[in-house]
Computed example of a mutant assay.
Amino acid sequence: MRFRASRKSLPNQGNNKDNGRIEAFIKKFGSLAPRRYSFAEIKKMTNKFNDKLSQGGYGNVRRGKLSKDCFVAVKVLSELKGNGEDFMNEVASISRTSHVNIVSLLDFCFERSKRALIYEFMPHGYLDKLIYSQGSNNQCRQLEWKTLYDIALGIARGLEYLHQDCNTRILHFNIKPHNILLDKNFCPKISDFGLSKLCERKESIISMACARGKIGYIAPEVFCRNFGEVSYKSDVYSYGMMVLEMVGGRKNIDVGVSQTSEMYFPSWIYEHFDQSMNLNLKGVIAEEEEEITRKLIIVSLWCIQCDPCDRPSITKVLEMLQGNLQSLIIPPRPFVSSQVRSPKTLSHDKIWTISDNEIVFSLSFIV
Rank of each mutant, 00 (worst) to 15 (best):
A5P: 05
A5D: 05
K8R: 13
N12W: 14
G14E: 09
N16H: 15
D18P: 06
N19Y: 07
G20T: 02
G20Q: 12
R21Y: 08
A24E: 13
I26Y: 06
K27W: 08
F29S: 11
R36F: 00
S38K: 04
K44Q: 15
M45E: 01
K48G: 13
G56F: 08
Y58S: 02
R62D: 11
K65F: 02
D69R: 07
C70P: 01
V72W: 02
V74N: 06
N83R: 07
M88Y: 08
A92G: 05
A92P: 06
S93Q: 03
S95Y: 02
H99S: 05
V103A: 07
D107W: 02
C109I: 12
S113H: 15
L117Y: 03
F121W: 04
F121L: 09
H124P: 00
Y126M: 05
L127Y: 12
W145R: 11
I151Q: 00
G154H: 03
A156D: 01
I170T: 06
K176A: 07
P177D: 01
P177M: 02
N179V: 07
N179P: 09
I180Y: 03
L181C: 11
L182Q: 08
F186A: 03
C187S: 03
P188W: 13
I190D: 00
S196E: 00
E203L: 12
S207R: 13
A211V: 14
I215S: 09
P220F: 00
F227G: 09
F227I: 10
G228R: 05
G228S: 04
E229M: 12
S231Y: 01
K233F: 09
K233C: 04
Y237K: 01
Y239S: 04
V243L: 06
G248Y: 05
R250N: 11
R250F: 05
K251I: 06
I253W: 04
G256S: 11
M263G: 12
Y264T: 02
Y264M: 03
P266C: 08
S267I: 10
E271K: 15
E271Y: 10
Q275C: 12
L279E: 02
K282L: 08
K282W: 00
G283M: 11
A286F: 00
E287D: 09
E288G: 11
E289C: 07
E290L: 07
E290G: 13
I297D: 01
V299E: 00
V299N: 01
C303Y: 14
C303M: 06
C306D: 09
D307Y: 10
P308V: 08
T315R: 14
V317K: 01
L321S: 08
N324K: 12
S327C: 06
L328I: 15
L328A: 10
P332R: 14
V336C: 13
S342Y: 08
P343I: 00
S347R: 04
K350C: 10
T353S: 05
S362G: 10
S364K: 15
S364R: 12
F365G: 08
